[in-house]
């Protein structure tokens, strides 16, 4: 599903590569944690999958497509097959829960009838039934993140990228978030989650890819956050 082949990314005005000859394979339906200290290249990895950045060398395949061969006007179609969740939720403050989720479908031109059918379903999937008409500032952090996950998943993407989704959320609530991610993963969606949260990684026992200074230092199935602990 995601295939990195010897990928190097150096940002302009920086000497040290953000990713240094990284090769990794993620299969369809896998759940992968991307761990490592700040600046180790986790976010760069996710941005490369979205084609927000281009690698300096190496090839990236996402959902069967080689990204360097994907013309710019086809990038939106790639992104429709990838859902994204961030630490800071990125909800629209002037739209309620339903509208925030529906927005993702409206802007890709889905028919209204389809939107009316699938949005309530996905709101229920993330556990926000009955809160469809709340505004984001009336929700807790955990609930806001659930809205963001509903928005990322509403178009049934093949891949879900999560960049520290529990970074702003207390540990108890984080468990709920992880349950939703697990539920999404069980529908066959590949989940790639960058995180610092050792407790979550340890409790999930999923594949762990550890980055350090732009290099993969560990790739372990059913792994834990840090080998040393």
């Amino acid at each position: 599903m995601i295939h990195f082949d010897n990928v190097t990314k150096v940002y302009t005005n920086q000497n040290r590569p953000a990713l240094d000859h990284v090769s990794v394979d993620v299969d369809k339906g896998e759940f992968v944690f991307l761990v490592g200290p700040s600046g180790s290249g986790k976010s760069t990895f996710l941005r490369l999958v979205l084609k927000e950045e281009r690698p300096n060398s190496g090839a990236i395949h996402v959902a069967g497509k080689e990204l360097s061969r994907l013309s710019n006007f086809k990038v939106p179609h790639l992104r429709r097959r990838i859902g994204c969740v961030f630490q800071d939720f990125r909800l629209l403050p002037n739209k309620n829960v339903y509208e925030n989720v529906a927005f993702a479908l409206e802007v890709i031109g889905k028919p209204r009838r389809f939107i009316r059918k699938v949005v309530p379903e996905v709101i229920e999937l993330v556990g926000l039934e009955g809160k469809a008409h709340r505004m984001p500032d009336e929700l807790s952090g955990g609930e806001q993140q659930r809205v963001a996950m509903a928005r990322a998943f509403v178009n049934r993407p093949m891949i879900l990228l999560a960049d520290e989704p529990t970074g702003n959320i207390d540990p108890a609530t984080s468990i709920g978030i992880m349950k939703v991610l697990d539920r999404i993963n069980r529908t066959g969606t590949t989940v790639l989650m960058a995180t610092h949260d050792a407790a979550i990684v340890d409790s999930m026992r999923k594949r762990v890819v550890e980055l350090e200074d732009g290099k993969i230092v560990r790739d372990q199935s059913r792994g834990v956050y840090g080998q040393a602990y």
């Binding site: 979205l50 006007f73 939106p76 179609h77 790639l78 992104r79 429709r80 097959r81 990838i82 859902g83 994204c84 990125r90 629209l92 403050p93 927005f103 993702a104 802007v107 890709i108 031109g109 928005r151 990322a152 178009n155």
Partner: peptide
């Protein structure tokens, strides 16, 4: 910028943005 950022993320085509 918030709206356009999200539109970009969920794969709205350039013309839509």
């Amino acid at each position: 910028r918030r709206e356009t950022g999200i539109m970009r993320l969920v794969g709205a085509s350039n013309i839509y943005i």
